[in-house]
Nucleic acid binder design. Structure first.
Length: 221
DNA sequence: GACCAGGCACATC
DNA sequence: GATGTGCATGGT
């Protein structure tokens, strides 16, 4: 039943919005940096920070690892929370340097659950950031859950409001075919929908999903 | 000027 | 274990 509803939601979203071409980043490394910088932050602010890193010519593991903290902080400043994010970037870069010789290629052969555990052990990388990295930088079969996914799932009564991250992730992973292309597009479409129609305290008039059964016409969380 | 944005770690109870 | 709080910039 849930599988059928998810399939219907996916098709409606794809028909309405079309392919989203995620993740907006040119390389796996850029995707990872973007995933850390976008924590609780508007993507347009992240773009400014990434543009700074690119024009400084230092969007590589080696350059960012060797860069002074203060210098890096100034470059990523537009993305907000710039001091904590600088520390989080450095934590990731140190992990990559110390354990994998600064080569993302060296992560390719690590099992997905092992790699996920390793990423989660880096201070500043939580479940959503880890899963974004796994799916969008490494094409692993992991469904990414975020605040939009949660609001939308509650609004459409797919899950209880007091759910946790892994519960919501399991809902998607166990009711969808294990297909990284689908996981990629579905999450991107949920974000696209959320940005326009499922903001906090906003109703969903005009939402492409509003006529579905089980839709709760109440304010989002 | 208020509100919000593609989280996370940490303090406190 | 649950709940609250700090972190910050830039767009609407």
């Amino acid at each position: 039943m849930t599988a059928r509803r998810l399939d219907e939601i996916y098709k409606l979203l794809f028909r309405h919005f079309g392919p989203q071409a995620w993740w907006p980043g040119e390389t796996p490394f850029e995707i990872i940096i973007g995933a850390i910088l976008t924590q609780n932050t508007n993507w347009s602010n992240v773009e400014k920070a990434i543009a700074n890193l690119k024009s400084a010519g230092c969007l590589t593991p080696e350059r960012m690892h060797d860069m002074q903290i203060e210098k890096l902080a100034q470059l990523v400043r537009p993305s907000g929370y710039y001091k904590v994010k600088t520390a989080r970037l450095k934590n990731f870069l140190s992990w990559l340097c110390d354990n994998h010789h600064n080569r993302l290629q060296n992560l390719q052969n690590i099992r997905t659950d092992t790699l996920r555990q390793q990423l989660l052990a880096v201070k500043g990388i939580g479940p959503e950031t880890a899963d974004s990295i796994l799916l969008y930088a490494f094409n692993r079969q992991v469904f990414v859950v975020d605040a939009y996914t949660s609001r939308i799932a509650v609004r459409h009564q797919l899950i209880e409001p007091d759910h946790d991250y892994s519960g919501l992730q399991q809902l998607f992973q166990s009711n969808l075919p294990a297909d990284t292309v689908l996981f990629n597009e579905f999450h991107a479409l949920l974000v696209r929908l959320g940005k326009q129609f499922c903001k906090p305290k906003a109703r969903c008039a005009g939402c492409p999903l509003e006529k579905l059964p089980h839709t709760v016409d109440i304010e989002c969380l």
